[in-house]
Design a binder for these strands. Sequence first.
DNA 1: AAGGCGCATTGAGAAAAATCAATTTTGACT
DNA 2: AGTCAAAATTGATTTTTCTCAATGCGCCTT
Lengths: 223, 223
Amino acid sequence: MRDRSIFAGLNTEELRSLGMEVQDIACHQGDVLYRKGDSARHAYTLRTGAVKLVKSLENGREVIIRLLHRGDLLGFEGMQDAQHRHAAIVLAPSQLCRLDLAELQRLSERLPKVQEAIRQRWQQALQSSEDHIMELGAKRAEARLATFLLQWAEHYPRLRSLPFPLSRPDLAAFLGLSTEHVSRIMADFKRHAFIQEQRGHLEILAPQSLAELAGKWPDHKPD
Amino acid sequence: MRDRSIFAGLNTEELRSLGMEVQDIACHQGDVLYRKGDSARHAYTLRTGAVKLVKSLENGREVIIRLLHRGDLLGFEGMQDAQHRHAAIVLAPSQLCRLDLAELQRLSERLPKVQEAIRQRWQQALQSSEDHIMELGAKRAEARLATFLLQWAEHYPRLRSLPFPLSRPDLAAFLGLSTEHVSRIMADFKRHAFIQEQRGHLEILAPQSLAELAGKWPDHKPD
DNA sequence: AAGGCGCATTGAGAAAAATCAATTTTGACT
DNA sequence: AGTCAAAATTGATTTTTCTCAATGCGCCTT
């Protein structure tokens, strides 16, 4: 575990030997890694668990911009901005590595490999953000939720029962819906036996049916 | 004009002298720079004009993922993916510089400055995508449109009458709304004398009022 | 100047989603 | 096991948005 590569193909030891300060951190549900506006001192790699990136609107409404899974990076916006752009909140028991941003900065100037790795992750983030925009802009609630559940499942391959630490408000904040609407649709999915839920775990019983919903639009033009 | 820096602080001549193939391109409304799935051979910098990045869903619905203005880069996803992720379509008469991706790749390995510049632009793209997610996820149609118009205006500082080459369907595809709904809201804005429109040009008469709409949520709780 | 075409607008009705207000379920703690 | 608080569900209603269909307008061509 300790010797697995955590960033840019380097493991903890190698990073440390390059002068990087790396700290293992264990977090649990609700922990705040940083808040929007905090001065950005650290970046993180998520080794296990799940984290949400949250932004809030002036009127208090919260939106989950991105959900992070094993292997994802966060806090790297600190490489440009002096402050974090969103809050990072831990959803499930997680293990992270904390990297000093200033040192990472220096390291990336010396090692093109690191620079390259960062750019690649950024690219992935952009990719996933663009997909999210598609979902929000073009699909209805039912389809968004179906897509989301299937995507969530992809992060836990060959696992019948998936860890599912998201509350209804979390789902709503990610999918741009009201809590109640999410709740209704989830209830529907259960009634149709597409999914099953219990104590923070989710089982997808009919991926096929969800996939159909996910791809379909308002009206059912079968041409 | 020709000697202005176009990328990573380098101007056309400097890039050429570094072995980069740079081509000036003039486009007009409707031109397709590349389509989704095209093998990615070039990246572009947009010198003047406007370009839309479009993705389409299986069911044919189109979404505008991002709108590009003077100074923006596009096509850089080709540095990771072999193919373009979306279509790039010119909205208004535009001038672009076309860069060879393979050479750019090589250049970026040699010059950290270039690598750094690319990462920075990526970061900006991510930033704007995340803002867009906020808009789509948390605001209603009226507010989205108001925000959008104000943002558009920011790209043309100290200009009373803004170039506005977007059709109603374009606006709808960007804001995740139906064409008709956009049309209604625009008509409303005109009736309230918030804006004025004519032949592809837009004038914002009451930025203050738009700003209020932009920040407000469904119900009007004045506390 | 007349005709026609594409785009924008408007209207009416239906569908989707939000809101408000209970009620039920769940899970934690004693 | 029993109580309590938080979270989820459900129901009723309103608001928002979409859809479908018709109409209007501007611009280009002839």
